[in-house]
Simulated assay, not measured.
Amino acid sequence: MNPKQKVAAGFIIFRRIEKEIQYLLLQTSYGEHHWTPPKGHVDPGESELQTALRETEEEAGLKKGDFHMYENFQRTLNYEVRGNPKRVVYWLSELKNPNIPIRLSDEHIDYKWLNLPSALKYVEKFKDFQQVLNEADSYIKSNS
Protein backbone atom coordinates (compact mmCIF):
# COMPACT_ATOMS: atom_id res chain seq x y z
CA MET A 1 0.00 0.00 0.00
CA ASN A 2 1.19 3.48 -0.82
CA PRO A 3 2.11 5.24 2.47
CA LYS A 4 0.80 8.53 1.05
CA GLN A 5 -2.56 6.98 0.19
CA LYS A 6 -5.42 8.23 2.33
CA VAL A 7 -8.14 5.69 3.08
CA ALA A 8 -11.68 6.69 3.96
CA ALA A 9 -14.93 4.81 4.46
CA GLY A 10 -18.62 5.60 4.73
CA PHE A 11 -22.18 4.65 3.94
CA ILE A 12 -24.52 5.42 1.11
CA ILE A 13 -27.65 5.81 3.21
CA PHE A 14 -31.12 5.69 1.73
CA ARG A 15 -34.68 5.72 2.96
CA ARG A 16 -38.02 4.90 1.39
CA ILE A 17 -40.75 7.52 1.54
CA GLU A 18 -43.84 5.82 0.16
CA LYS A 19 -42.43 4.39 -3.08
CA GLU A 20 -39.59 6.90 -3.52
CA ILE A 21 -35.99 6.01 -2.71
CA GLN A 22 -34.07 8.98 -1.27
CA TYR A 23 -30.35 9.28 -0.62
CA LEU A 24 -28.72 11.24 2.20
CA LEU A 25 -26.13 13.81 1.14
CA LEU A 26 -24.31 16.16 3.50
CA GLN A 27 -22.90 19.55 2.47
CA THR A 28 -19.37 20.15 3.73
CA SER A 29 -18.53 23.24 5.75
CA TYR A 30 -15.11 23.46 4.07
CA GLY A 31 -13.63 23.78 0.59
CA GLU A 32 -16.19 24.15 -2.17
CA HIS A 33 -19.01 23.03 0.15
CA HIS A 34 -19.49 19.90 -1.94
CA TRP A 35 -22.10 17.25 -1.18
CA THR A 36 -21.10 13.80 0.01
CA PRO A 37 -22.47 10.84 1.96
CA PRO A 38 -21.20 10.47 5.53
CA LYS A 39 -17.60 9.26 5.37
CA GLY A 40 -14.19 9.92 6.87
CA HIS A 41 -10.58 8.85 7.19
CA VAL A 42 -9.63 5.54 8.76
CA ASP A 43 -7.91 6.02 12.12
CA PRO A 44 -4.92 3.84 13.11
CA GLY A 45 -6.07 0.43 14.33
CA GLU A 46 -9.57 0.90 12.93
CA SER A 47 -11.16 -1.23 10.19
CA GLU A 48 -12.84 0.43 7.25
CA LEU A 49 -16.24 -0.71 8.51
CA GLN A 50 -15.54 0.66 12.02
CA THR A 51 -14.60 3.96 10.38
CA ALA A 52 -17.81 4.05 8.34
CA LEU A 53 -19.89 3.43 11.49
CA ARG A 54 -17.99 6.01 13.57
CA GLU A 55 -18.09 8.69 10.87
CA THR A 56 -21.79 8.16 10.19
CA GLU A 57 -22.55 8.64 13.87
CA GLU A 58 -20.25 11.68 14.14
CA GLU A 59 -21.40 13.40 10.94
CA ALA A 60 -25.10 12.51 10.77
CA GLY A 61 -26.00 11.28 14.26
CA LEU A 62 -26.99 7.84 12.94
CA LYS A 63 -26.00 4.77 14.96
CA LYS A 64 -25.51 1.19 13.76
CA GLY A 65 -28.97 0.18 14.98
CA ASP A 66 -30.63 2.97 12.97
CA PHE A 67 -30.02 1.31 9.62
CA HIS A 68 -29.79 -2.03 7.85
CA MET A 69 -26.50 -2.56 6.04
CA TYR A 70 -26.45 -4.46 2.75
CA GLU A 71 -23.17 -6.31 3.32
CA ASN A 72 -23.03 -7.62 -0.24
CA PHE A 73 -23.08 -4.08 -1.71
CA GLN A 74 -19.65 -2.55 -1.25
CA ARG A 75 -17.91 -0.22 -3.69
CA THR A 76 -14.38 1.19 -3.64
CA LEU A 77 -13.39 4.40 -5.41
CA ASN A 78 -9.78 5.33 -6.14
CA TYR A 79 -8.86 8.89 -7.10
CA GLU A 80 -6.38 11.66 -6.37
CA VAL A 81 -6.75 14.55 -3.95
CA ARG A 82 -4.15 17.29 -4.33
CA GLY A 83 -1.82 14.88 -6.10
CA ASN A 84 -2.07 12.09 -3.52
CA PRO A 85 -3.96 8.82 -3.97
CA LYS A 86 -7.14 8.27 -2.01
CA ARG A 87 -9.30 5.17 -1.61
CA VAL A 88 -12.86 5.37 -0.33
CA VAL A 89 -14.95 2.33 0.57
CA TYR A 90 -18.76 2.64 0.69
CA TRP A 91 -21.42 0.26 1.94
CA LEU A 92 -25.12 0.61 1.22
CA SER A 93 -27.50 1.06 4.15
CA GLU A 94 -31.22 1.67 4.57
CA LEU A 95 -32.72 3.60 7.46
CA LYS A 96 -35.08 1.47 9.53
CA ASN A 97 -37.14 4.55 10.48
CA PRO A 98 -37.31 6.97 7.50
CA ASN A 99 -38.15 9.89 9.81
CA ILE A 100 -35.19 9.62 12.19
CA PRO A 101 -33.62 13.07 12.62
CA ILE A 102 -30.20 13.84 11.14
CA ARG A 103 -27.81 15.65 13.50
CA LEU A 104 -24.96 17.32 11.66
CA SER A 105 -21.46 17.81 13.05
CA ASP A 106 -19.56 21.03 12.49
CA GLU A 107 -18.00 19.42 9.40
CA HIS A 108 -21.27 19.97 7.53
CA ILE A 109 -23.66 22.87 7.06
CA ASP A 110 -26.67 21.19 5.47
CA TYR A 111 -28.15 17.86 4.45
CA LYS A 112 -30.74 16.74 1.95
CA TRP A 113 -32.71 13.62 1.18
CA LEU A 114 -32.70 13.38 -2.61
CA ASN A 115 -34.16 11.07 -5.22
CA LEU A 116 -31.65 9.61 -7.67
CA PRO A 117 -31.88 12.28 -10.42
CA SER A 118 -31.48 15.10 -7.86
CA ALA A 119 -28.66 13.32 -6.01
CA LEU A 120 -26.81 12.83 -9.30
CA LYS A 121 -27.01 16.58 -9.97
CA TYR A 122 -25.63 17.41 -6.52
CA VAL A 123 -22.58 15.19 -7.13
CA GLU A 124 -22.15 15.93 -10.83
CA LYS A 125 -18.45 16.85 -10.40
CA PHE A 126 -17.79 13.31 -9.15
CA LYS A 127 -18.51 10.97 -12.08
CA ASP A 128 -17.20 7.90 -10.24
CA PHE A 129 -19.54 8.54 -7.31
CA GLN A 130 -22.45 9.11 -9.73
CA GLN A 131 -21.77 5.63 -11.08
CA VAL A 132 -21.82 4.18 -7.53
CA LEU A 133 -25.17 5.90 -6.87
CA ASN A 134 -26.60 4.45 -10.08
CA GLU A 135 -25.35 0.99 -9.10
CA ALA A 136 -26.83 1.38 -5.61
CA ASP A 137 -30.19 2.40 -7.07
CA SER A 138 -30.21 -0.59 -9.43
CA TYR A 139 -29.27 -2.89 -6.55
CA ILE A 140 -32.06 -1.54 -4.33
CA LYS A 141 -34.67 -1.92 -7.08
CA SER A 142 -33.57 -5.44 -7.97
CA ASN A 143 -33.56 -6.54 -4.30
CA SER A 144 -36.85 -4.99 -3.16
Rank of each mutant, 00 (worst) to 15 (best):
G83Y: 03
L62M: 10
P101W: 04
R75P: 00
T56V: 06
F73Q: 00
V88T: 15
R103T: 07
V88H: 05
F67G: 01
P101N: 04
N78K: 13
E58T: 09
K63A: 04
E71A: 02
Y90H: 13
V89T: 15
I102N: 04
M69Q: 11
W91C: 02
E58R: 14
L104G: 11
R54A: 02
R103C: 00
A60N: 05
Y90G: 03
R54N: 02
Y79R: 08
E80M: 11
N72P: 04
D66S: 15
R54Q: 03
S93R: 14
V89W: 13
L77I: 15
R54Y: 04
K64F: 10
E58C: 02
I100S: 07
P98S: 02
N99F: 10
E80L: 14
E71R: 07
K86S: 10
I102R: 08
Y90P: 01
M69K: 12
Y70L: 00
N99D: 08
Y70S: 00
K63I: 02
R103N: 03
Y79F: 15
H68W: 12
F67L: 08
Y79C: 08
R103P: 00
T56C: 10
V88S: 12
L104H: 08
L62G: 09
V81H: 11
F73K: 00
H68F: 14
Y90D: 04
E59R: 14
G83R: 04
E55G: 03
K86N: 06
V81T: 10
T76E: 15
K64W: 09
E57I: 04
P85G: 09
G65S: 12
N84A: 12
T56L: 07
Y90L: 10
Y70F: 13
P101H: 06
V88P: 00
K96E: 01
V88M: 08
L104E: 03
W91L: 04
E71M: 04
L95M: 12
E55I: 02
P98M: 03
K63S: 06
E57R: 14
K64C: 02
K64A: 05
Q74D: 01
Y70E: 09
E57V: 05
N78C: 06
K64D: 08
